[in-house]
């Protein structure tokens, strides 16, 4: 008989993440797929994969843009509250969470009791999100992940000022014409994301970085650490909202 576990799914704009959680509130298995054009399809793929070795307890706990676009019994929650729950369980202290996703950047202030004191999302603009990276990579005809390796060879930190992705690309072309290397530009692109994050809300002493973008672009975390002394980015943080969603409902 397969073990019976709770499933949390975070249906984001770019990726759909699922986690199986046991009775000790620990993640037992996880899976991520591209969301694509159909939330139902993405969530069904998660369900299918994670039920290979386990029995899924119903209802499923969902959050994210597609939280109610699933074809099975579910309870939905805010991914911001869910993410905060997971971060607080992991770190247990007052902190600022910066979650960088495909389409949204979220800044959350968690108090000593683990409650959300304040949160704010990026303005309706790609600046500071994964979409910014993807669009620039596309225009430069490289893979977004290449920015990581390229930035290892950077010799100086070039500043990219434009908020707008299109204008940022024009600015980058201007920099290239002046002889800037792609490695230095890569760091400039990452720093631009950090700048956009930091202007959302003034950060607390402890900063926790989460989301799919920092997980696949660890240079962002490294650059955050250069600026702040207390920066942490837990492993598998892109699954934290899905995990926290199960934890939230566990409490109820």
């Amino acid at each position: 008989m397969k073990p019976r576990l709770k499933l949390g799914i975070d249906l984001g704009s770019s990726y759909t993440k699922g986690v199986l959680v046991n009775g000790e509130n620990q993640i037992v298995d996880q899976y991520v797929v591209k969301t694509g054009f159909d939330f139902k399809r993405a969530s069904s793929r998660i369900m299918e994969k994670l039920s290979e070795n386990y029995e899924i307890a119903m209802p499923v706990y969902t959050c994210g843009y597609g939280r109610d676009q699933v074809e099975f019994d579910h309870i939905s929650n805010s991914e911001i509250i869910a993410l905060s729950k997971a971060v607080y369980l992991k770190f247990g202290k007052k902190c600022s969470v910066i979650d960088i996703g495909g389409q949204d950047t979220k800044f959350i202030k968690i108090n000593e009791q683990g409650q959300v004191d304040k949160f704010k999302m990026n303005r309706k603009c790609a600046a500071g999100t994964g979409s910014f990276l993807e669009e620039i990579a596309f225009r430069l005809d490289i893979s977004p992940l290449e920015f990581n390796t390229l930035s290892d060879d950077a010799t100086e930190e070039i500043r990219i000022n434009s908020y707008c992705t299109v204008f940022a690309i024009s600015e980058i072309i201007g920099l290239m014409k002046k002889g800037a290397t792609i490695s230095n530009i890569a760091v400039g692109i990452y720093n631009s994301i950090i700048e956009r994050c930091l202007e959302i809300v003034a950060a607390d002493e402890t900063i926790i970085i989460t989301g799919g973008v920092p997980e696949t672009h660890p240079t962002i975390v490294r650059l955050f650490k250069k600026r702040f002394s207390q920066v942490e980015s837990p492993e598998n943080s892109q699954f934290y909202a899905a995990w926290g969603n199960v934890l939230l409902n566990e409490k109820k």
Partner: peptide, 22 residues
């Protein structure tokens, strides 16, 4: 065109959950 309905929806729902917890 200056309004993202989905983003506002998530923000408002989160805010109410935040208030509920408080």
């Amino acid at each position: 065109r200056c309004f993202s309905e989905e983003q506002a929806l998530i923000a408002i729902e989160t805010f109410i959950q935040q208030l509920s917890a408080k």
